[in-house]
Structures are given as structure tokens and as C-alpha cells.
Design a protein around this nucleic acid. Structure first.
Length: 886
RNA sequence: GGGAUCAUAGCUCAGCUGGGAUGAGCGUCCGCUUGACGUGCGGGAGGUCACAGGUUCGAGCCCUGUUGGUCCCACCA
């Protein structure tokens, strides 16, 4: 007894069941197997704090499509999953939760806090993984990793020590971005600039005579941050500036602080901007820091970690930076040193996590020296060893690599990889080592304090492609699956992650981590806005899955979307795609109903009708196109073609054409050929669709194909020249055109449904004439198409149905002309013109010596073939024009 | 300031290296209980492919400029 599909398509009834089956059968699991070629993707590890959002859904869907595609193509496909500890994001969340309980980090202490953090990881780390499963992700869950698991931790220490020894990691006092709310340093990449309305305070400092007395003259300048004046150690002018040349080397009196500060000359100053005078605060401005280095100026830090003024700020000590600003302006005004206040819009650096205005501070931090490290990463993309899709992102990539600055990697956080640096309690010697040292190499002391800082969360992510495969151990997995193949991720983390993985891959492994980076954009709401918590416009993928099924969601996310482009999310789209799943479901049910208990047998080639050959040829072409598109990562284009084929060609045309043959049970040969074709073509189409819609395709496949256990381990269809039937394709196209013509004519005529209409079909030879009659509504239906063919066959109008040359068909009487002669003539003339141009071009190319001598042979052959093709077409067109003109 | 990218049907978007706008989904209008599907079937309306030049036999696609939008980087205090 044949299995049956449920009468209605209900994704919730099949998805969980099938996923469990795949897990049980271990289809996702990949083992090293030297006889097969590997194909590897490492997942961008979602944060353990995260809930599945549309961005994940898109990211995972694209990866799953590629992995399933390659797996079916026979590759040993590994999708390496895992999660990210997301140091700062997680720590902030845990602290928030603790706040509700009235506890602070300090109450718990480092140990206690970490205990809580691990408990958090245990509770929420699994949540996102379960959500990924709902999407149908075929990750090898047996290999799941975590950025802070033992292996990854080992990899981090290994890299840190190695790079420290090579001089690529160093500790130094440099100006860094400080977040006073999160209480940690952050890297340049984490600073987000926001346009804010502010002010320009024009202030003047008194100029001193050489003997230290006030000269009565002033130097005027403008600042957006008056409070930083507390830390001013100079004022700068341009060396060539005639207005101020005489003042260079003189001193000024820094008001409020009563500190003598020099006037220095530096090219950094823009003479055109403002008054051409800049106050220099090396301790709180990155540019000033550089100026300060050049002129050997003292660095005064005037702020505490929480952005209040410290003891260096004199009487302002203890005030918040903004309160101090107000007080200082007020006082300067009282002293007559405030010239004026202007409104000014400027960009303010904020912390991307908490949006707090960052404070540039000079602090001792750990850095990765980038200048040498970045070189292989630049070269790799430049020379095409690593391909970015879309290519336009190369510019963004190079913009970053060409202006790379050292990477601040230390964070004043507790949740993360602790820096493996130890300081001797006796002599202060720094020891960087994988294991805690026991004896100080300098003084022999045995007491050490480990550096309290942790590493930037991206430090461990940078090692992800090889740490997950076992590095630093030389595992068989590492040797086999590395380098990985494709990295799929959003363009928003190109700096944070992609570039860092690339240079880390070259540095640690001596090899690229992957050959292609496939970028996607953001999923926005239907108004084009980013989905965000504060707007409350986020759409929960799990809710969509509950309503429409994972298949519909997946299709929605990849259809009509080019790499690297943002997309908008519409419920209508999901609905349309759910309808598509329903369509396939019903078409499959129809085919199975007709098969009843008997599986069709392979027909003789001669028994295949033109319509059969046509659809076989079409699916064959589809296989070729889709495979090519997918290999070029054009996932949206590929699936659009599958969609069109299944709905339009297969369901709306082929199934309708074939119906009369299915109902005519006496002609078993024809019926078998039709059923066989239906089944095989459907299977090919299902296979092509499987990477996109894994669940429906699996359910149908398993019901239809009783002997095979799963579509996901079946083989990807291959284009076969023997299944290419150009003649039938052209003929059916003609028939289709004719049928459309009939429908149009009918619509125009508005014949009452009850009346019978007649269609006269005449081929080019007089004796092959037939008359078809039917209910006029009948002509409007697609069933008519099949009837034309079947009738034509039966009446012997032609040897096979499709050779009814409808281009020569005339439809008489109430239906009017099928072809508008004038329009046709116009079309042909246009075609003639086009061909003329085309011929000219090809001829021109082929007679061009440079082209013939330099172009690759394949290209020349192609052009020659075109020449031949166009010549023939030209003849035909000319003949047709002559014919019609009569 | 530098760069990227977009401007195609009422809306949202595809359109590969230049070769008949081949378009899709939704919406809209007309018609259909046709023995898989109304989550369906058939048909229609709707486009000077932002604007202006240029290259070409031929441009939505290439070049130049203009306008408008989005994003990234830098940050002139």
C-alpha cells in the first residue's frame, strides 16, 4: 500500500518530526573521510545571551542552503556550530539581572560572579541552539563548541603567548576609548559616532611675557569640550601661520589651574578652521595625544574611570564631566575669558553597546600590533585568494586594512578569557605564559598576580575557524576540514570579525581560513527600519515558523535578495511562500493519487510524448541553471527559477497537458510515460528545492519514493545532454503561445459560456486539418492545452501532437486571428535590425586582428558559433518578412 | 571630507560579464465550484528602467555630470 500525504499541508505536523529523524540518523554528522572532498562552514557563533532574531534566521538559512547543496553534491559537508561567550554583552546582562536582586559585581567578587556567569551560560546558551534547530539547520551538533570552552581557551592562550613572544602583542600606555558606564576600555571598532547638537565655546587664554607677567594679550580658540582644559598642557598653532608666528615658544597662563603652558607649532593645526588655534589636551584627545608625543608634552589625566573629575582637576574634583563643563564655562565667563558660544553640530563617539559617550583616556592596556599582521590579509583579498561576495565590499575592507591601527584587546571585565600575563609580586616582572609561572625568572620570587583584565571577545572569535577544529592540537579534523570553505555573515561585522579571522588564519595556520566570504544585509521591517527592541518592531522568527512553517520563512529570507543587500520583511511574502509549499504539496498529492498502487516503469524513449520531452528538457535546463547560480552564491536567483519552474511550467502547464492521458486509462503506455515523467521531474525539482525548503521536500520525497530514506542524502541532479530536447521545447512554446492566443481571443469575444465555439486548426499542408469543438469556457482553461495535443494526436493531424505547427495556425470565425500581422511584421523588422547589428558586431570582432590573435580560443569559437546562429536566424527572419509582406 | 550603494509596474524588490522590459511577490480590475490545490485557475490594466549628455550597430546594464535617498569610514579642536 502506497504511503499518502496528509490532505492538507500543515508544516507544524511535519517539521519537528523530520528534524528528529535527521538527528537520529546522524545525517548532519561529518567524520573525516579521505575518500571524499570536504566542504566546511563554521557558524558565526551566536551570543549566548541571544534570542533568535531575523538576522540569525537569514544567516543560518543561507549557510544551511549551501551545506545541504554541497552535501547532496557528494561533498563531506561539515557545518561546525557553536556559541560565543560575548564578553561585554553577557556581562552587562548579568549585571542588569543582579541589579534587580540588589546585588553588584563587587558584592559577589570575581569568583562568585563567574559562577553566576557560567550558570547563565548553562541556562541560556542552549536556548539559542534549540531555536536554530527550529529553522532546520543541519549543523553537526556532536561538534558543538563554545568560545570559552577548554579547547578555545587553550587556543587563546597559545596565540597570546606566541604573539607576545613575537612582539605582536604588547602592553603600553596609549590613548584608548573608555566607556565610563561599562567601566572598560573598548576598541576603535566598538566606537559608534553619533551626530549631536553641541556648542562651540570660544575661550581665550592670557599670553605671558618672558618674565611670567601677563602681557595683556590673549589667544582665542574654540572648543566643544571646555572641561578638558583642566588637562591642557599646550596650545598649538600652525608653524607657518603669520598671525601667531611670533608667539611660538611663548607661554600662556592656563586659567583656573594657573599652570604655565607653552605655545607650540604643529602642522596638525588647520589655519583655516576657527581661529587657527587649538588647545592641546594629550590626556583626553587622540589627536592631541599625538601632538603631545611630538612636542614631549606632559599628559595629565583629569578623569576618574566613572568620568568624574579627579584630583588633577583641582577644585572640580568629584564633579561629573558635564557638571564640570557647566561650572567651568560659568567661571570663565565670570573671569571675562569666555568670548562667545556658538551652536555646533558634531559627531560624538559613543559605545556601541550602551551608547554612552566614550571618554578618550590614557591607560596602560594590551594591544595587538597590526602593521605586519595585516599584510597577508590585504594581499589575500587583493590577489583573489579570498573572495568577497559581493565584490564591492572590497573597498570597505581595504579602507579598514589600509588605515589599520593597533587593536586594544584588554577589557576591564570579568567574563572572558583572562589575559595570561603574570606579575611578580616581589619585583614586578611580567611573565606571559600559558600556565601560571612558579618562579620569577628575574628575582626568583614565587608569588605572582595574574593580570586582572580579560580579552576583547573578538580575540577568541578571530580564532574560531581553527580553534573549533581542535587547534592547537594537530587533530585529524584540523588537517582535513581546514581551511574552511565559505564564511556567511552580515556586512556589519566585517571589521570586528571577518578581517580579524583572516589575519589570524594566516598568522597562526599559515593559510587562509576560507576562500569565500558571502555577505548578507540586514533584515528590516516593512517600513525599512532596523528591527530593534526600543522600537518594538522586531518580528520573532519562531512565531513566523509557528504560523507558516520554517520552509516558508527560509524561502522568504532568500528570495529576491542579492548578496550584501538589506531586505524588508513582509508577512505577505511569507504567506506567498507558504502557499508555494502548499502548491507543491497538492501537486504531489495529485501525482500520487494517479499512481495509486503502481509505480510507473521507465518508458521507452519513443513512448515519451513531446510534452514529456519538453518538461524533461526544461527540468534539465533548470538543473544546469540552478547549479550554476548556486555555485556563484546567487541563492535568490536560483530559487526564483525553481519556484517559477514548479509553479508555472510544471503545475500550470505540464500537469494540465497530461491530465487527459492520465484519465484515459486504456492507453497504458501513454499513461505510464506521463506518470513516469511526472514522478521523475517532480523528484528532480524537489531535490533542487531541498536546500531551501528542507521539510516539505523531505516529506514528499519520502512518501513518493518509498525505497529511499531521505532526500537530504540523495544525490544532486546533474545536467544530462541526452535529456536536452530543443525541438520539443520550441514546439511546446509555440503551442503555449497559440493557447494563450486562443484565450485572449476568447476573452475579447466575450462569448456566453453556454455556446459552443469551434476552433479550426490548420497546419501548413491542407490535408492535415482538424476541427476542435468544445464549450467556450473550456477553451479558457488550461485543460484545453492538453486537449489540443491529444486531439491532434488522435486525428492524425501530425505524427506527434506537438508537430502541429501553431505558428501557421489560423483560428477562424468568431475567434479572429491568432496573430496580429502588423504587430508581427513590426516585431520581425525589429528583429532584423537587431540581427543586423549583432552580425556587424560579430563580424567586426572576428575580422579584428587583435581580437583574433589575443582572445582565448573558447571566446573565438563562441563568437563564430554566434555568427553562424545569427546568419541562420537572419535568413529565417528575412523569409518570414517576405512571407508576411505578401 | 573620503568611499560605497541605490533610483525599474501602485508598494517591495529581481534582472548574471551591454543584445527584444523575460520580470516576481503583494495590491488592483475582469472572468472561472475545470475530477491536486480558492493557500486555487485563466485573463487584463499599470513601466520615457531618476534626469542630462556620451560610447556602441545596440544601454536598465559601460563612461561623465546632475538631483534625491541609504550606509560605511574619517572626525576640524
Amino acid at each position: 500500500m502506497a504511503k499518502e500525504l496528509a490532505k492538507t499541508y500543515d508544516p507544524s505536523g511535519i517539521e519537528d518530526r523530520l528534524y528528529q529523524k535527521w538527528l537520529d540518523k546522524k545525517y548532519f554528522h561529518a567524520e573525516v573521510d579521505e575518500s571524499k572532498k570536504p566542504f566546511t562552514i563554521v557558524i558565526p557563533p551566536p551570543n549566548i545571551t541571544g534570542q533568535l532574531h531575523m538576522g540569525h534566521a537569514l544567516d543560518e538559512t543561507m549557510q544551511d542552503i549551501l551545506i545541504r547543496f554541497k552535501r547532496m553534491q557528494g561533498y563531506n559537508a561539515l557545518w561546525q556550530p557553536g556559541t560565543d561567550h560575548a564578553s561585554i554583552a553577557t556581562e552587562v546582562k548579568i549585571i542588569e539581572k543582579m541589579k534587580e536582586e540588589g546585588i553588584t559585581k563587587e558584592d559577589l567578587g570575581r569568583e562568585g560572579f563567574l559562577e553566576r556567569a557560567w550558570a547563565w551560560k548553562k541556562e541560556y546558551g542552549g536556548r539559542i541552539v534549540n531555536q536554530l534547530k527550529k529553522l532546520g539547520s543541519s549543523c553537526d551538533w556532536d561538534r558543538e563548541r563554545f568560545t570559552m570552552d577548554e579547547g578555545c581557551n587553550k587556543a587563546v592562550n597559545e596565540v597570546f603567548v606566541k604573539m607576545y613572544e613575537k612582539g605582536y602583542i604588547y602592553k603600553g600606555s596609549r590613548i584608548i576609548n573608555w566607556c565610563p558606564v561599562c567601566n572598560t576600555s573598548i576598541s576603535d571598532a566598538e566606537v559608534e559616532y553619533q551626530e549631536q547638537a553641541g556648542h562651540f565655546w570660544h575661550i581665550k587664554y592670557p599670553i605671558l611675557n618672558d618674565d611670567g607677567s601677563e602681557s595683556g594679550e590673549y589667544l582665542i580658540f574654540a572648543t566643544t569640550r571646555p572641561e578638558t582644559m583642566l588637562g591642557d598642557t599646550a596650545v598649538a598653532v600652525h608653524p607657518e601661520d603669520e598671525r601667531y608666528k611670533h608667539l611660538i615658544g611663548k607661554n600662556l597662563m592656563l586659567p583656573l589651574m594657573n599652570r604655565k603652558i607653552p605655545v607650540v607649532a604643529d602642522e596638525y593645526v588647520d589655519r583655516e578652521f576657527g581661529t587657527g588655534v587649538v588647545k592641546i589636551t594629550p590626556g583626553h584627545d587622540p589627536n592631541d595625544f599625538e601632538v603631545g608625543k611630538r612636542h614631549d608634552l606632559p599628559i595629565i589625566n583629569i578623569m576618574n574611570d566613572n568620568a568624574t573629575i579627579n584630583a588633577n582637576g583641582g577644585k572640580y574634583e568629584g564633579m561629573d564631566r558635564y557638571a564640570a563643563r557647566e561650572a567651568i564655562v560659568k567661571e570663565l565667563d565670570a573671569m571675562g575669558l569666555l568670548v562667545k558660544i556658538e551652536d555646533h553640530v558634531h559627531n560624538v563617539g559613543t559605545h556601541d553597546r550602551c551608547k554612552t559617550t566614550v571618554e578618550p583616556l590614557v591607560k596602560a592596556q594590551w594591544f595587538v600590533k597590526m602593521d605586519e599582521l595585516i599584510k597577508p590579509a590585504q594581499k589575500a583579498v587583493k590577489e583573489g585568494e579570498i573572495r568577497l561576495v559581493p565584490e564591492s565590499l572590497q573597498k570597505t575592507y581595504f579602507n579598514w586594512t589600509d588605515n589599520i591601527r593597533d587593536w586594544c584587546i584588554s577589557r576591564q571585565l570579568w567574563w572572558g578569557h583572562r589575559i595570561p600575563a603574570y606579575y611578580c609580586a616581589d619585583c614586578g616582572e611580567t611573565v606571559v605564559a600559558k600556565e601560571a609561572p612558579t618562579k620569577c625568572p628575574k628575582c626568583g620570587g614565587t608569588h605572582f598576580n595574574q593580570d586582572p583584565d580579560t580579552l576583547d571577545t573578538w580575540f577568541s572569535s578571530a580564532l574560531w575557524p581553527f580553534s573549533t577544529l581542535g587547534w592547537p592540537e594537530q587533530t585529524k579534523e584540523l588537517k582535513y576540514f581546514y581551511p574552511t570553505d565559505v564564511l556567511v555573515t552580515g556586512y556589519d561585522i566585517i571589521f570586528f570579525w571577518v578581517i580579524r579571522m583572516i589575519f589570524s588564519g594566516y598568522e597562526q595556520m599559515g593559510e587562509r581560513p576560507f576562500h569565500t566570504v558571502l555577505f548578507h544585509g540586514l533584515v528590516r521591517d516593512d517600513k525599512g527600519r532596523k528591527m530593534s527592541k526600543s522600537l518594538g518592531n522586531g518580528i520573532d522568527p519562531l512565531e513566523i515558523i509557528r504560523q507558516y512553517g520554517a520552509d516558508a520563512l527560509r524561502l522568504t529570507l532568500v528570495t529576491g535578495n542579492a548578496p550584501g543587500n538589506d531586505m524588508r520583511f513582509y508577512y505577505e511574502k511569507v504567506e506567498a511562500n507558504r502557499n508555494f509549499a502548499n502548491k507543491i504539496w497538492n501537486a504531489s498529492r495529485f501525482i500520487m493519487m494517479n499512481m495509486e498502487d503502481t509505480q510507473p516503469t521507465k518508458p521507452e524513449v519513443a513512448d515519451l510524448k513531446p510534452a514529456d520531452r519538453w518538461i524533461i528538457s526544461r527540468v534539465n535546463r533548470l538543473i544546469k541553471d540552478v547549479t550554476e547560480n548556486m555555485e556563484k552564491y546567487e541563492l535568490g536567483v536560483a530559487v526564483q527559477k525553481i519556484y517559477d519552474f514548479i509553479w508555472d511550467e510544471f503545475c500550470d502547464w505540464y500537469i494540465e497537458m497530461v491530465k487527459p492521458r492520465l484519465y484515459a486509462k486504456d492507453d497504458t503506455t501513454s499513461r505510464n510515460a506521463a506518470l513516469y515523467t511526472l514522478k521523475t521531474v517532480l523528484i528532480d525539482a524537489l531535490k533542487l528545492l531541498h536546500p531551501y525548503m528542507p521539510f516539505v521536500t523531505e516529506e514528499i520525497f519520502c512518501t513518493l519514493q518509498e525505497e529511499e530514506e531521505s532526500i537530504m542524502v540523495s544525490s544532486w541532479p546533474v545536467y544530462d545532454e541526452a535529456r536536452d530536447f530543443a525541438k520539443e521545447e520550441a514546439e511546446i512554446e509555440t503551442i503555449k503561445e497559440a493557447i494563450r492566443g486562443i484565450r485572449n481571443a476568447r476573452t475579447g469575444m466575450n462569448v456566453p459560456p453556454s455556446k459552443k465555439a469551434q476552433v479550426f486548426v490548420v497546419s501548413d499542408s491542407e490535408e492535415k486539418r482538424a476541427i476542435f469543438t468544445g464549450n467556450s469556457d473550456f477553451f479558457k482553461t488550461l485543460a484545453y492545452a492538453s486537449d489540443v495535443i491529444v486531439q491532434a494526436d488522435k486525428t492524425g493531424i501530425a505524427d506527434d501532437a506537438v508537430s502541429v505547427v501553431i505558428a501557421h495556425v489560423n483560428i477562424y470565425m468568431p475567434l479572429g486571428d491568432l496573430v496580429d500581422l502588423e504587430k508581427e511584421l513590426e516585431r520581425l523588422k525589429k528583429e532584423e535590425q537587431r540581427l543586423e547589428g549583432e552580425l556587424k558586431r560579430v563580424n567586426g570582432m572576428l575580422s579584428n586582428e587583435k581580437f583574433v590573435s589575443k582572445a582565448p580560443e573558447a571566446k573565438i569559437a563562441e563568437e563564430k558559433a554566434k555568427l553562424e546562429k545569427y546568419t541562420k536566424m537572419m535568413e529565417q527572419v528575412k523569409a518570414q518578412i517576405a512571407n508576411l509582406s505578401k
